[in-house]
Nucleic acid binder design. Sequence first.
DNA 1: CGGCCTTAATTTTTT
DNA 2: ATTAAGGCCG
Length: 830
Amino acid sequence: MFSAHTHSGASFDAHHSPLLQHLNPEQLAAVTLPPEPALILAGAGSGKTRVLTTRIAWLLQTGQVTPGGVLAVTFTNKAAKEMMTRLQAMLPVNVRGMWIGTFHGLCNRFLRSHFKLANLPEAFQILDTQDQLSAIKRLCKQFNVDTDDERFAPKKLARFIGACKEEGQRPNMLDARDPETRKKIEIYQLYEEQCQREGVVDFGELMLRSFELLRDNDPIREHYRRRFRHILIDEFQDTNKLQYAWIKMIAGLPAEGGGAAVLAVGDDDQSIYAFRGARVGNMADFVREFNVQHQIKLEENYRSGSNILDSANELISHNTKRLGKNLRTSQGPGEPVRVIESTSDFAEAQWMVDEMKQLVREGLNRKEIAVLYRSNAQSRVIETALFNAGVPYRVYGGLRFFERAEIKHALAYLRLLENPVDDTSFMRVVNFPPRGIGARTIEQLQDAARAFEGGKGCSLHAAVSAIPGKAGANLSAFVAKIDVLREQTTGLNLREIIDLVLDHSGLLTHYRAEKEGADRIENLEELVNAAESFVTQEGFGRDAVALPVDEWGEPLTQSPVSQGLPVRPEPVEGPASTLRPTQDRPSSARTEGLAPDAETGETLSPLAAFLTHAALESGDNQAQAGQDAIQLMTVHASKGLEFDAVFIGGMEEGLFPHENAMSDYEGLEEERRLMYVAITRARQRLYLSHSQTRMLHGQTRYNLKSRFFDELPETALKWITPKNPGFGSGFGAGFNSSGASNKGAAYANPAWGRSSLGSNSEVFKSPPVPVQKAEAGHGIKAGMAVFHSKFGEGKVQAIEGTGNDARAQVNFPRHGVKWLALSVAKLTPI
DNA sequence: CGGCCTTAATTTTTT
DNA sequence: ATTAAGGCCG
């Protein structure tokens, strides 16, 4: 089954290539696999990216494929960039010209090449999630959809449409069994028409339309199948149904005589995106459908000591649905995994900060220390503690650069220059900065646009002339402004265009007058910089030198790598059928066959290319990158990263595993995988922390410590604070409430008051004192341990109401969280 | 039309 | 507790 093969497709001494040095046997086997479908099960920290990039380099170097014959897909731009950078470092190839990118980036490239066949305008624009939502809202208003009815809430509709697209379903393919679904499908249909009319596509559409073009156009499909001999997919466990279908379509299944060597790299244990459509099952499907004969496990971990790895292994072994894999290390045990209990989230944060300071004193870089948490809301208290201690920190997540309102506004103006019928952009800025165009006017305009030519409809831009009076004049002035800008900016370079638009749109003036506008101005200036570096890096812009690309869009390099290599896709002979492909792009001397690849921007204007870039790459979301600062992020955001020291906070039932995920088995397994990801981020030190109380949504919650503690090997752990009975032990109060001293005495333990580190003499600012909040009458208090005749022992989470209406939220380890009316339920304090 | 106030939501997220 | 979005009044 999973075994290390070392055969190679090349006959010469490929194994002596310097590329292959320092690879372990499994990595070497993966890199030098024969050109056939294969699955690499790559554990955390096992050198996955290295294998992927070395594989590509090795294939190129041994002449098994040309740069143009490689298709490498990732999920994030970051991963794609990393792959290109590392490949570039290994070989003198033009990685920019290679098809290495995200699913959406590559689909965009594909659709730009074949925009006519895809039935899209040449400069189609991409809607991000925000844009999509506002497009749906606009549509709902127009067609009088009752969005107050939560079944038809715009967000729900967006999810419905997205889900349909992921299933490959167009409106006409869907069956409406009930009125609700019928209406949703109808809205989906209208949404599609609206997008088509406005020349925009959402993210799902990029994927689906690419898939459909490949599926429905034989010459196109055959061309790409012949071309891409090697397809490599990163993070395969995160692929959704459509993405996998797309892979099958572009690779061709062996059963259909397809021949691409698909190398899928993934880790089922790190599948943490089922909630957004990822299907781990694609791994098993892949093995079956591609008749995979080569499966290799990369289990050697180069990151952590065995205490950390044993913890990860033991935890994940509690999952049932696994392909099976165990991380191992040749390092020693390393530091134990430290477990800390605090009395409050505040104390927890303070403890972390003190410990971090000690770590820094011992020589760790701050940027090598991370705090991971399950949900973003947890970051605040830690930020506060770090801030008060004067420790620099960096929070990942939140708004990304291109998502900021002021940037979106600027981009909307720019998009209107490219495409006046983009109503989403029109709506965004028609009255921003305010120019006396209100809701009433907009409504009139929308009515006029819809009624145009007896219901045929037209863009808002085109309907402006139909509006009379003052309102009409204001609208006309806006449209005229855009039209003038378009004229003024023709022939200018990207920087000049943006400068002019920022100025003439009134955005700069508006934000200058605003009290809090300084940051926004700064961001707008940053937009100019982003455009500038885009031009330089991507080679766009008026003066940019076009990339050397041959007639098939393959990069021309002078390197020996691609010289004289025979494999180059033949131009597709136009078959004598009606499916004969048409020339997509009018220009150029390419007369017959398919249009070659578009180097994005080769024909697009620099502005259009930049707008595409902005939509596909929302940019950084980290302020002050590069500073030596403590890293704060969700566990999700930490995937793929590693740190010397990792703190995982909020290790409590309801938080981690999250309450919304613990009810069903699948959800709990995903939470466990999430925990697995979190644990395996740590190189040297790992801290797991839980707190007796925690503020959530303005209320104090009393949580049991996470069940995951019971799934870790005791030998790898070091309980800094005394270990108290927890979730699995029947009942988990870390303190007593009635004065009886069961565990309370433990706090006299000398371990208290000292930090974990032998050398560390930090004193705890706040030893864990039981926190109690008295509630009137019934004698039941939040945080109390209680007994219920049916549910057994539990811990009171919260009290609500008074007198006969008083209810208690109680967490019973065996029965979950219950709300009990205190006038009815007999709860006895223990 | 614009500012202010009430209301509701608050797991995780990339493109 | 905090924030964002939508509705209402000046």
